[in-house]
Nucleic acid binder design. Structure first.
Length: 419
RNA sequence: CGGAGUUUAGCGCAGCUUGGUAGCGCGCCUGCCUUGGGAGCAGGAGGCCACAGGUUCGAAUCCUGUAACUCCGACCA
């Protein structure tokens, strides 16, 4: 069972969904066009989008995989507030150092507040209250939650948003060595996560920007529409963010690691991880007592994945001229059921298939032409298409077509329907 | 935040030069007919032409201002 939400309508006739035949004029990127045409998202303001039930379902599948990978390395899910007092941001100095992308406002009582663009301050506040002893370390917490960043220039649909869903995790350690070990575990978990999502990523040396701290890596998906430039070495596969490369002082185009020529490629950042050290624990006094009875700041790491952006990236990496080609792991439904005509035989078989496949099937039960339904099935991109028609029944059952390969076969009704 | 562009029905667009009370395609509603790649016929609904001021007998159209959105750049855990 892929989902447990039986309450979501799975008949297209009554679904909160409208597909578009024509390409929306504001969309230039493939993922943006397909997200709009498939009806998964709707723009409410620049960089701010509503997700329809179909879009939310796809995003939830990505979020679920992120959750599973975090749980696998013993992450503990939690939830931190979006609205936060300015006070904790003053403690770390970021209230003053971050630009207008941090939205500041006052509540009705005149208190200075911010909309969280990231959650180091809030999680460090939690940690300084809970963590007292080295015996509690290491530990990691994470959340899948909304961020608001008032970006100067949102772009590309879900590629660069102002409001978006992020998986952010924070680990706490007694020393740098333990952070190093855990950091490697996270790198492996991230690699597994992106693989499950059906996209290829490169791990890239990164600078730490406003996050502070020491070591950092970005996870980049290679794509022409990407905003970032990477310098990639074909010889040893080492990739570096342009800022890091330039900061190295190297002025020829050769690899930092092996000296072979590098080439510039474009990429989309789909995640990043940082060794924060005591950047936040020191100013916020998140201390613990070590084995020798000495109070020391806890050593931290933080690990982010842009869930919203990833939905766009999955589509950038998985589509054809007709529409989306979902990886099975992200597809909002495993199968798309198309009924042709409304004969009693066709409907009777469809009802049995629909009941049997529970919430894994989307049934296009609309009173629309066969052509329209088939085009929409390609656009929406579920991995398998089940067509029930007088023709298929005469041929021996239900037509099963793979969206990715286009291969078609007739399968007997009893092979699809549970006994 | 600099530069460019756009804004007319749910979506895609025309109309603006030369002012005269809003149009096309798709979609939507009714009926008939149809059902394997966005069918057909007939009838119908839907717009404060982004907003605010001007000019004019009269403004989608001309003038001024504002806003929103998109793209390029700068910025960007």
């Amino acid at each position: 069972m892929l989902f447990s939400w039986r309450w979501i309508s799975m008949k297209m006739s009554t679904m909160m969904l409208k597909t578009e035949h024509e390409t929306p004029s504001e969309a230039e990127l493939t993922s943006h066009r397909l997200l709009l045409r498939s009806g998964m998202i709707r723009q409410l303001a620049s960089g701010i989008y509503s997700l329809t039930p179909l879009g939310w379902r796809a995003m939830q599948r990505i979020a679920t995989m992120a959750r599973e990978e975090m749980n696998r390395i013993e992450g503990q899910e939690m939830l931190l507030p979006l609205v936060q007092p300015a006070a904790i941001w003053r403690e770390t100095g970021r209230y003053y150092s971050v630009d207008e992308s941090l939205n500041r406002f006052q509540d009705r009582g005149g208190q200075n507040m911010v909309l969280a663009m990231t959650h180091e301050e809030a999680v460090t506040d939690m940690a300084r209250h809970v963590i007292e002893s080295h015996r509690q370390l290491p530990m990691m917490v994470y959340q899948i939650q909304t961020k608001f960043r008032d970006e100067a220039r949102p772009r590309g649909g879900l590629i660069r948003l102002r409001e978006f869903l992020m998986k952010d995790a924070y680990s706490f350690h007694a020393d740098e060595g333990d952070l190093d070990k855990f950091y490697e575990k996270v790198r492996k978990a991230y690699a597994m996560f992106y693989k499950r999502c059906g996209i290829d990523v490169l791990q890239v040396d990164s600078d730490t920007g406003m996050m502070g701290g020491g070591v950092a890596h970005e996870f980049m998906m290679l794509a022409e529409c990407g905003e970032d430039t990477l310098l990639l070495c074909d010889a040893c596969q080492r990739a570096a963010n342009r800022e890091v490369y330039e900061a190295s002082g190297r002025d020829d185009d050769t690899c930092l690691q092996c000296g072979q020529p590098v080439r510039a490629v474009r990429g989309i950042e789909v995640g990043n991880i940082f060794q924060l050290g005591s950047r936040y624990s020191l100013p916020m006094h998140a201390d613990f007592t070590d084995q020798c009875g000495v109070r020391r700041p806890v050593v931290m790491g933080c690990y982010g994945i842009g869930i919203s952006r990833l939905l766009a990236c999955v589509i950038e990496a998985n589509h054809d001229a007709a529409g989306i080609v979902w990886p099975e792991t992200v597809a909002p439904y495993a199968a798309h059921l198309v009924t042709v005509g409304a004969s009693s035989e066709v409907i009777a078989v469809a009802e049995r298939v629909y009941a049997s496949l529970a919430d894994q099937v989307l049934w296009d039960d609309r009173d629309a032409s066969a052509g329209r339904k088939l085009q929409d099935a390609d656009l929406l991109g579920m991995p398998k298409r089940l067509t029930i028609s007088p023709r298929s029944l005469a041929a021996g059952g239900i037509e099963l077509r793979s969206r990715r390969t286009g291969t078609v076969q007739i399968v007997p009704v009893q092979d699809v329907v549970a006994p």
